[in-house]
Amino acid sequence: MQYRELGRTGWKVSALSFGAWAIGGTWGPVDEAESTAALHRALEMGVNFFDTADVYGDGISERLLGRLRKETRETIYIATKAGRRLTPHITEGYNRENLTAFVERSLKNLQMDALDLLQLHCPPMPVYYLPEVFGVLDDLVQAGKIRHYGVSVEKVEEALKAIEYPQVQSVQIIFNMFRHRPAELFFEQAQKRRVGILARVPLASGLLTGKMRADSAFAAEDHRAFNRAGEAFDRGETFSGVDYAVGLRAVEALREACPAGMSLTQFALRWILMFEAVTCAIPGAKRPAQAEENFSAADLPPLPEPAMAAVRAVYDRWIRPEVHHRW
Score class of each variant (00 low, 15 high):
216 S>I: 08
303 L>C: 05
83 G>H: 04
107 L>T: 05
267 F>A: 14
101 A>E: 06
261 G>E: 12
257 A>I: 11
226 F>P: 00
209 T>P: 07
322 E>N: 12
64 L>I: 11
13 V>E: 00
273 L>K: 01
263 S>L: 08
98 N>F: 09
121 H>Q: 07
99 L>A: 09
46 G>F: 04
194 R>W: 13
212 M>V: 08
290 Q>C: 04
319 I>V: 13
170 S>M: 01
265 T>Q: 11
278 V>A: 06
220 A>E: 15
124 P>E: 10
315 Y>W: 12
261 G>C: 11
107 L>A: 05
152 S>H: 05
102 F>D: 07
238 T>E: 05
49 F>V: 03
296 S>T: 10
322 E>M: 15
5 E>R: 14
233 F>P: 10
173 I>D: 03
327 W>P: 03
32 E>F: 08
247 G>R: 03
42 A>N: 04
158 E>R: 15
133 V>W: 05
73 R>V: 11
164 E>M: 05
229 A>Q: 10
94 Y>S: 01
230 G>F: 09
16 L>R: 05
71 E>H: 00
275 F>G: 09
50 F>Q: 06
60 I>L: 12
140 L>Y: 02
258 C>N: 05
307 A>C: 09
51 D>Y: 04
62 E>G: 12
71 E>K: 02
320 R>F: 08
41 R>A: 08
279 T>F: 03
121 H>Y: 12
275 F>H: 15
21 W>H: 08
182 P>V: 02
147 R>D: 02
34 E>I: 09
98 N>L: 05
325 H>N: 15
84 R>I: 06
317 R>G: 01
126 P>G: 01
171 V>C: 14
22 A>D: 14
234 D>F: 14
167 Q>N: 13
136 V>M: 11
246 V>N: 01
7 G>R: 07
151 V>M: 05
323 V>Y: 05
160 L>T: 08
61 S>I: 02
12 K>Q: 12
186 F>E: 00
201 V>C: 14
327 W>N: 08
208 L>Q: 14
